[in-house]
Structure formats: C-alpha cells, structure tokens
Amino acid sequence: MLQLQNNCIRNIFKVFQINRHNFLRSTNETTLNQVYQNFHKICVANKLKINKCNFCSKPVYDVNTNVVKDVVIFKYENPKFFKVINLFGLSQFFFWTYLSHFAFTTLRDAPVDETIAKEEVWYKRINLGENKFRNALTIFSFLIGYGVLTAAWLFTLRSVRFLVLKKGGKSISLVTYSPFGENRIMTVPLNCVSAETSRESAKVQLPLKIKNRKLFYILDMRGEFTNPRLFDYTVGLKRKLN
C-alpha cells in the first residue's frame, strides 16, 4: 500500500511540478492523513486549490476484474480483408508453383558458343537450361509461392477478432480469424498473457504474447475496445512469462 501511495504522489509531483524533497522530509509518513496534510501545505504555498473530500477517496487502480459473466473487451470485424489476403496468398502460390513446374520441364540445356559469348552481354551468356540454373529457378519459384501463402495464413491465424474475459476474470478467450472463414477459439489463463505495449501507446497494432506459443497475436488498433478500462487491467498488462 505504501508503495502504491508513493507512486501516486510521484505522479502528482510531475503534474504540479512540486519539489519532492520539500514535500517528503520523513520516510515514516505512511498514513493518508499525513500525506494529505503535507500535500495541502505545498498546494497552499503554490496557490493551488484542492478538495479534501475528493482527495484519494477512491484509488484509480480500483477495478473489479471479477466479472459475473463473459465480457467482450475487444472486437475487430473485418472478414472481407482477410478473405482478400488469403485469396491473394493462394493465387500467388499457384502462380509460382506453375512457374516452378514450367522452369523444370521446359528449360533445355543449350550451351552458348564460346566464340560468340565474349561479345554478348552477360545475361545472354547464361545457359538457363543448365542443371544448376534450372534447379535453382525451380526451387526459388516454389519457395516464393510457399512463403507468400505461409505469411498470409500466419497473419490471418494470429489476428484477433474477439477478446473475451471469461467469468471470474481468471482466463481469457482469443477468437482469431482462419484462412477458410471459420473462427478459432483458444482459452488461456490471464497470467499467461502479456501485452508488449500499452493500449494508448500502440498506433497500428498491439502485440500479445501467449506463454508457450510462438510469434505474437495481433490486435488491430482499428478495432473497438468495448471496455477499455477492463482491458487495461487484465489483458493490457505486461507480465513476465517464464
């Protein structure tokens, strides 16, 4: 409790630009009345008005996370965007796979005449039908298509559609998009979720780290925080995941 009071007092000092050393001259002042008395003296000295009945009447960190029913605290409804992303990934996969097949079956070994090769530009001197070039083009083309499709699917599977705080406030359900339109639901304990940044400082995306899960889950900031205060004191906290 003393640590929380000290943190609140430090924030007050920053707002009102008060000298902390002139305010807290004794480390034994542990009660709110003593804190208020000293703070009131400083306010009078700085000609600041303060209402005693409103001073620390209710802590700003007093948030009831023990909800009596499931509560949606975030939602991001944009299924059309993810359909386009996955169609793009599939089209790129088929295109590059066809190009890979075409390179492997069509390119023929056609050696370049050495007497003419020296006079030609560098790219005309390359025999693409040679085994090393043909195999390289085949593998490279397939990897491009596979990589694009994998990236599209990973982005979709890690994009959060709904965040649901479960009854009792001890666990959270992440509802994510999937490549084929269905929702995927994963329920984890709240102490296994860590936000990499705060909701207010996140500009485009807010990454969430889940214990024993690779990569991050993504909250798009274009979504709606239906209960921002409850989010900040549950999912929005940065935790150490051992």
Rank of each mutant, 00 (worst) to 15 (best):
F155T: 06
V63W: 10
N33P: 03
L143Y: 06
N33S: 15
N212V: 05
V72I: 15
I126L: 09
I210H: 05
N33I: 10
N242D: 04
T138E: 01
Y76F: 13
V71C: 00
F225K: 01
P79L: 09
I42Y: 11
F162T: 02
K75L: 05
T138F: 07
N127A: 10
C43G: 07
L241D: 02
V188P: 00
K124L: 05
V15D: 09
Y61N: 15
E120Q: 12
I172K: 03
G129W: 11
Q92P: 01
S194C: 11
L48Q: 15
D232S: 14
G89E: 00
S171D: 01
I9S: 03
H40I: 08
K214F: 04
K83D: 03
K238H: 12
E119C: 11
N6R: 14
Q37P: 00
T197G: 11
L241G: 04
V121N: 11
G181F: 13
K211Y: 13
N212S: 13
M1F: 08
N22P: 03
F104D: 01
S173F: 04
L230N: 00
N127C: 11
L128M: 14
G223C: 06
N66A: 14
A195C: 13
K118V: 13
L137M: 08
S159L: 05
Y76N: 01
F94D: 00
S171G: 02
S171Y: 00
L90I: 11
Y123R: 01
Q17E: 13
T27C: 11
L165T: 05
K49R: 15
V35I: 14
T156V: 14
I18D: 00
R125A: 12
T30A: 09
F180I: 14
L99R: 03
R108N: 09
A151F: 03
L107F: 15
T65H: 10
L163Q: 01
K203G: 02
T176L: 06
D232I: 07
C56H: 04
K58G: 12
T197L: 10
K58S: 15
Y36R: 07
K49E: 15
W122T: 06
I126N: 06
H101L: 15
E120A: 13
V175F: 02
T30Y: 06
V188C: 10
L128V: 14
L99W: 06
V15T: 14
V164M: 01
D70L: 01
M1I: 10
F133C: 05
M186L: 15
L2V: 11
N78F: 09
S26W: 13
L157M: 13
H21T: 15
I73N: 02
H40L: 10
Q205C: 09
L149I: 13
F23K: 05
T187C: 10
T30M: 07
N54D: 04
S141Y: 05
C192V: 14
N86L: 07
F81M: 02
F82M: 04
E130K: 04
F140W: 04
C56S: 04
A202M: 07
S57H: 13
T187H: 10
L149F: 12
V193E: 00
W153L: 03
V160G: 05
D109H: 10
T234F: 04
K14T: 04
V35Q: 03
F102S: 06
I218G: 06
N51E: 07
L32Y: 07
S100Y: 05
G147R: 04
N38S: 15
R239I: 07
L206G: 00
L32Q: 04
R229E: 09
H21W: 11
R222F: 08
T156I: 11
G236W: 03
S57M: 10
